[in-house]
Simulated scan of single mutants.
Amino acid sequence: MSSATGAAGDDDEVIHDFAPLLLVYRSGRLERPIAMPHVPPGRDAATGVVSRDVTLSPHSFARLYLPPAAASGSGKRLPVVVYFHGGGFVIGSAGSAAYHRCLNDLAAACPAVAVSVDYRLAPEHPVPAAYEDSLAALRWALAAGDPWLAAHGDPARVFLAGDSAGGNICHHLAMHPDIRRGAGGLRGVVLIHPWFWGKEPIGGEPRSATKMQKGLWEFVCPGAVGGEDDPRMNPTAPGAPGLENLACGKVLVCVAEGDVLRWRGKLYAEAVARARGCSELGVELFESKGVGHVFYLLEPAAEKAKELLDRIAAFVRAE
């Protein structure tokens, strides 16, 4: 949370209401109602996964996860999963308790060497800061810039994964020219409840949701061109770069039945499949029934969360 000095009474007036993610007061004070508590890295008793933090820059870090399979003595290299947290670009961290639990479980289930990326948040650091930090972290991971990655990671089996805003980041990175030019090891991308939107409602999107989605996007990305039809928010908008340019061999899009973003996720999967042609789909869509947005972070032990984890792990393991 950050604060600024304002005139008497200004602090009580909310000028931007993006609850429960962010409240912005006229004084400049920011309130993040569901700010996630941080936990330290270490050995996870439930999975045996070991984690540690690595500083990437003065304003970003990565939390690395090494599963017990890495210590088996087989010498077999493991896939590398680079994960980007969600939170509307305004909350969340690689050190958040919910993401720490998620990455321990994911690293063990695949098994894989996992890299959870921390990036700067808006509005203190508007988009594209999050994209820039994420790109730098991915370049570092692809270059095996850490002993764990160098010793145990397979540079030919690198996956991007992320939820909500993190899913948006995954798409942005997979479309980036620098990543496309050196995409030999980028095997696949997993978009979990990705935050995409657009000016015109699709499917069953309620028009009541448009104000929130549009307002938050334009707030975190004041340089957005075309509002919520900016290609970074709407990758299927007219004039957006062609999805055939995704720098990965395969794509898994995960949606939730009770999530207002589900129609955008389905549209994205369909658009990627069309762009790749019927003979080269490489696109999977997985829908979790009866649950909402990022439910697996809130209830990691629930059966639906285990089903989602198993599907992602199978996607990473498949040749």
Rank of each mutant, 00 (worst) to 15 (best):
L281Q: 13
W263R: 03
L267W: 03
A269E: 02
K250R: 15
S279W: 02
P238A: 12
V253S: 10
E244V: 01
Y268Q: 01
A247D: 03
A256H: 04
L252Q: 08
L267K: 13
C254S: 12
V272Q: 05
E270R: 15
V272Y: 08
E284F: 01
A275K: 11
L267H: 13
G258Q: 13
W263Q: 12
V253M: 06
A247P: 05
V255Y: 13
K250A: 11
M233L: 11
G249D: 15
T236W: 03
G239L: 04
A275D: 07
E270W: 09
A269R: 06
C278E: 10
C254R: 07
E280V: 03
A240S: 11
A240K: 00
M233P: 07
V260W: 14
V283P: 02
L261I: 08
C278Y: 01
L281H: 09
P241K: 00
P235C: 11
C278M: 06
E257G: 15
R264L: 06
A269H: 07
Y268K: 00
A269P: 02
V255G: 12
N234G: 09
C254P: 01
R274K: 15
K266E: 14
C278L: 09
L285N: 09
G242Y: 02
S279P: 02
Y268A: 00
G282W: 13
V253K: 07
R274T: 14
R262A: 14
K266G: 14
G239S: 00
G265N: 08
